[in-house]
Nucleic acid binder design. Structure first.
Lengths: 94, 94
DNA sequence: CTCCTTATTCGATGAGTATCGAACTAAAAG
DNA sequence: CTTTTAGTTCGATACTCATCGAATAAGGAG
C-alpha cells in the first residue's frame, strides 16, 4: 500500500472514532465484558435503534468490532486485534 | 470531567485526525524533524494556502501542534506531550 | 398462522466540513 | 513608500454525516 492510501486508511479509522456515541458504544462494550445487542445499546444511550444500527455498521465496516448472529439478535463485541494494531492501549483508557 | 464530556473530548481529537490531509501534515512534520510553515506544506501537498491554514488551525485548537511566530512566518511543530497522553506510539507509526 | 422482538434500510432533514479564490492584514525587502 | 511574502478570513459550493420515524424483513413464541 502506498503512503497516500495508508493516510486515507488511517483517517478512515479515526473518522469512525470521531463520533461521541460510537466512543460510548465502545466504552460500554469494553466495560460490559460481554457481547451486547443493538436494543441494549439503544436503551442505555437513549438513542433510536436505527441510529444504533447505523453506528454498529460503521464500527463493523472499520473492522473495529465483531458480530455474531444468534436467532434474530446480533451480538456485538470488540475486535481487540484491530485496536492492538492501530491503537494499542486505547481501550484501557476508556 | 464527567464521562460524557470525556467521550466528547476524545471524539473531538479523533475528528481532527480523521482528515487525510491532516494526517499527511503530521507525517511530514514528524519526518521533517523541524518546524514547517504553511507555505511549505501547501507546496508539498499541492493544496491551497487557505486550506492548509484551515487545517493548521484545527490541529492547533486540538492541542496537537505548537506554533511559533517568527517575523511574518508561523512555524508549526508537533506537540509530543499531547500525543503521548492520548495516542502513545502513534507518531512512530506514521 | 399471527404477533412480538430484533435489526436493517429508506427518505428526509438539519448540521457540519473541506475546498477554493478573493480580499485583507502585517511584516520584510527593495 | 511600494512590492513581495506569509498567513488569515470570508463567501460560496459541494459533499458528508447523524438522527429520526416509517417501512421492511426475518426469526421466535403463542
Amino acid at each position: 500500500m502506498n503512503i497516500e492510501q495508508e493516510d486515507n486508511r488511517l483517517a478512515a479509522i479515526f473518522k469512525v472514532l470521531s463520533e461521541p456515541n460510537r466512543i460510548r458504544i465502545l466504552r460500554i462494550l469494553y466495560h460490559a465484558g460481554r457481547e451486547l445487542t443493538c436494543s441494549e445499546i439503544s436503551q442505555q444511550l437513549n438513542i433510536s435503534k436505527s441510529t444504533v444500527s447505523y453506528h454498529f455498521k460503521a464500527l463493523r465496516l472499520a473492522g473495529l468490532t465483531n458480530t455474531r448472529q444468534e436467532a434474530q439478535a446480533k451480538y456485538l463485541s470488540i475486535n481487540r486485534a484491530a485496536f492492538d494494531r492501530y491503537l494499542p492501549h486505547f481501550l484501557e483508557t476508556l
